[in-house]
Design a protein around this nucleic acid. Structure first.
Lengths: 141, 141
DNA sequence: TATTGTTATACTCTATAACTATA
DNA sequence: TATAGTTATAGAGTATAACAATA
């Protein structure tokens, strides 16, 4: 089959995300890192003292989902929940030293890969990629 | 934070895939469909009598993962495992009538969304999107 | 009242390892 | 020996619903 107007974007998206997940598990096997954990740590490495709610809005996960992920990260000694400086109903998340090391490692490894992709396809094409992602998310609302 | 060379591709990819998952659950709530199930049904609607191994190579999942997904789909009466016409060690997967209806519905809904995205950004940009996906997957190997 | 987060619960997703059957 | 698939098992991801605390 494979008719000319079969869905292409969604399958490609899923496939790449799945490949990214396998890459994370393979690359960080020494610490036993999953995809969700890797991205939370990388995010925290770049956004010190982010509130849980920032993760919620940035990632699009339910708050209860983040509770689970942060519980595991905290149990492994990679993050700490701390009082938020300005609001008592927010909870800030801090990286421990071990967590920061891993977060920066993830972030750096992703940067390297993205640099290589950019070098291969060029800035314009990268911009177009992000434009499609954006347009797609709008249609999915 | 948010330095100019922070990872952008991977987070965008994850975010869009997550949004797609939420869209699937919302759009097909009446039948109770998950993202993985939706994509398998849509694939089967376009590839009659695909072997489990075709799903394995197309999606990148482990074979045992597909066993789980197909078990659930079969329990709900949406697919059937049948003998493969040419090899006794392959297992073909057939859509039931109910499964075909759902698979075509998923496929059609995705087509509509992708049409809209294409109309918004143009063919070239779509091509660039796929080029980035391709380059990224190469780097992730 | 609305927002932020947790708890309890329940599936689904996904993988690894050991196994069977077929090629 | 290599490939295709299942079974058993386990952990991670994710959601909903009910709840408490704060704004």
């Amino acid at each position: 089959m494979d008719d000319y107007n079969a869905p292409r974007l969604a399958p490609a998206l899923e496939h790449a995300t799945h490949a990214l997940g396998l890459w994370v598990e393979r690359t960080f096997r020494d610490v036993g890192l999953t995809q969700a954990e890797a991205h939370v740590l990388a995010y925290l490495a770049r956004h010190p003292n982010a509130a849980i709610n920032d993760l919620h809005t940035s990632f699009g996960h339910k708050r209860s989902t983040l509770t689970s992920i942060l519980d595991r990260l905290e149990a492994r000694g990679w993050v700490r929940r701390v009082p938020h400086p300005t609001s008592r109903r927010l909870v800030a998340v801090e990286l421990t030293e071990a967590g920061r090391a891993i977060g920066e490692r993830v972030s750096g490894a992703l940067q390297t890969i993205e640099e290589r992709v950019r070098a291969k396809v060029g800035d314009t094409v990268i911009g177009d990629f992000l434009a499609v992602i954006h347009a797609l998310e709008e249609e999915l609302q």
